[in-house]
């Protein structure tokens, strides 16, 4: 049976809703913390998926990989050549693509913070006021500016020395971050700590590192639940004092929980015979490919 629509449904009423405001959205402290946790968890999931791939870096013996990364890191820190640092960064990008990390993902993780954040930090350093030197571009000249006690220079240039210095800092920062990312994304954390133990890091420190890394993720999930719980109970605006007291209470809760976990893990490990010794030693299996990789890294460092 076809019934006609009631009158109130047939009415064609136009409601003038206010136009959405064009503004940059500001996330509150809970959302920002949530984003931080999601980012860490996503990075971990990505790292786990890439470490298992069969590409060049994943095939290199971890000891050789760590030594090569360290000498490249030192070469990048010591060099005064911008071309060398640029070449190292391009090489790292190529290796990241070959290792299956994804060019976009690598650039977002490494180049964005290095070029954007470090870039912003060193940007004022390119002007003659901070770094005097050979002029590349004159911003203004013959202007006498004074703001209170602050007297601006009569001529303000962008200097060659300033630009070189900024590029050195940015490229060094990018190469260090790139090397750390490549090592971490192509090697499992448990393998890295075993290599560190082989290099002489005390057993107790390695055990603490392993346990910390493992439990950080467990506590991140717990933290996520805390924040979700808080958000689900929030309606309306929260006073500054309430926000801070929630943070203080959560910190106190986490102190209690981490202590309880620490005690439980301690007794569990003790009941299994743990005495503070670390038994995760890893055998060194260096092949021709690994030696070639180390030699290649050493040759690159010769150009620094």
């Amino acid at each position: 049976m076809n019934r006609p629509l009631p009158e109130w449904l047939q009415e064609n009423v136009t409601i003038n809703l206010p136009a959405p405001k064009q503004c940059v959205r500001r996330f509150d402290y809970l959302e920002k913390t949530l984003q931080g946790i999601y980012k860490i968890l996503a990075q971990d999931a990505h790292g786990n998926s890439t470490a298992g791939k069969r590409a060049l870096l994943q095939q290199i013996e971890p000891h050789a990989k760590l030594i090569a990364a360290l000498i490249l890191l030192l070469a990048a820190a010591w060099t005064k050549k911008i071309e060398f640092l640029a070449a190292v960064n391009l090489l790292l990008l190529g290796l990241a693509a070959q290792a299956g990390l994804g060019v976009k993902s690598f650039m977002t993780r490494v180049w964005l913070p290095a070029f954007f954040f470090s870039g912003l930090a060193v940007l004022p350093g390119i002007i003659s006021w901070v770094t005097p030197g050979e002029s590349l571009y004159t911003i203004y000249s013959g202007v006498h500016l004074q703001l209170g006690w602050l007297t601006f220079p009569v001529v303000l240039d962008i200097t060659k020395q300033g630009v070189q210095s900024a590029l050195l800092v940015i490229l060094r920062s990018a190469s260090s971050l790139g090397l750390a990312t490549l090592v971490l994304k192509t090697t499992r954390w448990s393998v890295i700590t075993k290599v560190l133990a082989k290099f002489g890091l005390p057993a107790a420190v390695v055990a603490v590192l392993d346990l910390t890394y493992r439990y950080i993720y467990l506590f991140l999930l717990l933290f996520l639940e805390y924040i979700m719980g808080r958000r689900s109970r929030l309606a309306g605006r929260e006073a500054q004092g309430e926000k801070l007291s929630w943070i203080g209470g959560t910190i106190a809760d986490f102190l209690r929980i981490t202590r309880e976990y620490g005690e439980d893990i301690h007794y569990a490990m003790q009941s299994r015979g743990f005495t503070g010794e670390y038994h995760g030693q890893m055998k060194l299996k260096i092949g021709l490919c690994d030696i070639g990789f180390l030699i290649a890294a050493a040759i690159i460092c010769c150009f620094a």
């Binding site: 107790a204 055990a207 910390t212 933290f223 959560t250 620490g262």
Partner: peptide
């Protein structure tokens, strides 16, 4: 042998920095 307590201290420190 109480390394778990130190590890949990490190986890706690990491969580504080995350806030």
């Amino acid at each position: 042998a109480r390394v778990p307590l130190l590890a949990m201290g490190a986890v706690f420190s990491f969580l504080i920095m995350l806030f």
